[in-house]
Simulated assay, not measured.
Amino acid sequence: MNDNHYKLDAAIADEVGAGARVEYRGEVNAVVICGNKPNHILHLILSVVSCGLWLPMWALVAWLNYEERVMITVDESGQVSRKVVPQGASSVITRP
């Protein structure tokens, strides 16, 4: 294992320590997911039970809570870069 693997592992550990979870881990890159999706089933039940009074809160939670995919890459010189991956752009992820 070379030094770049350790740098990638350290960058992943920093993201996980901040609450992210690992979606993919390759030789030179990894994709982590930051944030959370709202529990739409729970909010639907609360909206029905409250006769719609919960709808503004559901809209606010859905607007504020989102997931973001971040690609962490280590190049040949050992530089670690962090890039937000646009939604639906799975072709950006290089998998051997």
Rank of each mutant, 00 (worst) to 15 (best):
W54F: 09
G88D: 06
V48H: 02
N65I: 03
T94F: 03
V70F: 00
T94R: 11
I12F: 09
Y24M: 09
V22P: 03
P86C: 05
V28R: 15
L8V: 05
M71D: 03
W54G: 05
A20K: 04
A18H: 06
R95F: 10
G52D: 07
V70Q: 05
G52P: 01
L42N: 06
I93K: 08
C34H: 11
N39D: 13
G26H: 02
K7M: 12
I45S: 04
A18G: 04
E15L: 07
S47P: 00
R69C: 05
L53N: 02
S47Q: 00
M57W: 10
I12R: 08
P56G: 02
A30P: 04
E15A: 14
D75V: 11
A30Y: 07
S90D: 10
L44D: 07
V74R: 09
A13R: 14
D14K: 15
V48C: 08
G35H: 12
L64C: 13
W63P: 00
E27N: 11
I45L: 14
Q79V: 13
C34K: 13
K37R: 10
N2T: 13
N29K: 03
V61I: 15
S47W: 07
N2Q: 14
G19V: 09
I12Q: 06
E67T: 13
S91Q: 13
V70K: 07
P96M: 01
H43G: 02
N36Y: 13
V70S: 01
A30W: 05
V28G: 12
C51T: 08
K83L: 11
R25M: 07
L60Y: 13
P96K: 03
Q87W: 02
L44S: 12
N4F: 10
I33E: 14
H40D: 05
H5F: 09
V61Y: 12
V70A: 02
S77V: 14
S90V: 13
L64F: 12
P96Y: 01
S91K: 13
A18V: 01
G78L: 06
G35I: 08
L46T: 09
D9L: 11
G19M: 09
S50E: 02
V84H: 01
C51G: 00
D75A: 09
A62N: 03
L53I: 09
N65M: 15
N65E: 13
P86A: 00
E15R: 11
V85Q: 01
R82T: 11
D75N: 15
L60S: 00
N4Q: 15
K7T: 08
E76A: 15
G52W: 10
M1Y: 10
M57P: 00
L53F: 12
H5L: 10
L64Y: 13
A59G: 07
T94S: 12
W54L: 04
H5N: 12
N4G: 07
V48M: 08
N65F: 12
S91W: 15
W63G: 14
K83V: 14
